[in-house]
Design a protein around this nucleic acid. Sequence first.
DNA 1: TTGACAATTCCATATTAGTCGAAATAAAAT
DNA 2: ATTTTATTTCGACTAATATGGAATTGTCAA
Lengths: 105, 105
Amino acid sequence: MELELAAARLAELGHSTRLAIFRQLVRAGRQGVAVGDIQQQLDIPSSTLSHHLSRMIKVQLMQQRREGRTLYCQLNFDVLEQLLGFLYAECCAGERTPFTLTKLE
Amino acid sequence: MELELAAARLAELGHSTRLAIFRQLVRAGRQGVAVGDIQQQLDIPSSTLSHHLSRMIKVQLMQQRREGRTLYCQLNFDVLEQLLGFLYAECCAGERTPFTLTKLE
DNA sequence: TTGACAATTCCATATTAGTCGAAATAAAAT
DNA sequence: ATTTTATTTCGACTAATATGGAATTGTCAA
């Protein structure tokens, strides 16, 4: 992943509301969470939430899937993996390597 | 590290100029890089660069040390470690864990 | 086919971020 | 002391982001 894209994705994680959304998405795993559930947890107006979700979608951090009248948000784990991979590639280029990354199968 | 602080730090990495600075800092390791060297690499006005550096300092991602008339910028590896640790803690809370984090001694 | 529910889009507004020239500060060299 | 080099702070401007009420779209149920 090139720098511009990584920066755009990090910027989306760099907002407390969106990071809180991200956290919920991670915990929900593959099946995702309904927008309404996220809203209840965060207690913010739906239009504000929608705005944040659309930003995250724009950089492919997550996607949505409709099921009846509820929309489920699911994290794109592969994109997250790319992003963390990018950060690690940068970190491991230094003289001191604070971590190693092990991708699980 | 709590969510607010993590978000603030991620936001600083979420800008292409600052992410490029971050990359240089990582590669430079403990001894750091001179502000002038960063500027030469990125080819941006010094006032713009200074502004970005002060933002990164404000969230403790880096610090400066003076040596004669040149200022060296050094990454706070421990803070980076905390930040990545936070992200990992979030990632590993899901039903599917994409990675494991191994901190090296 | 109307009503309720789930969520988005539209719109307006307030706040914050990003950029960069010019002036200021700090340290060394002449 | 003055100049040069290194970098920051100030000030002004523009662009982007964040927020939320109101109107809209999509889906189901009665």
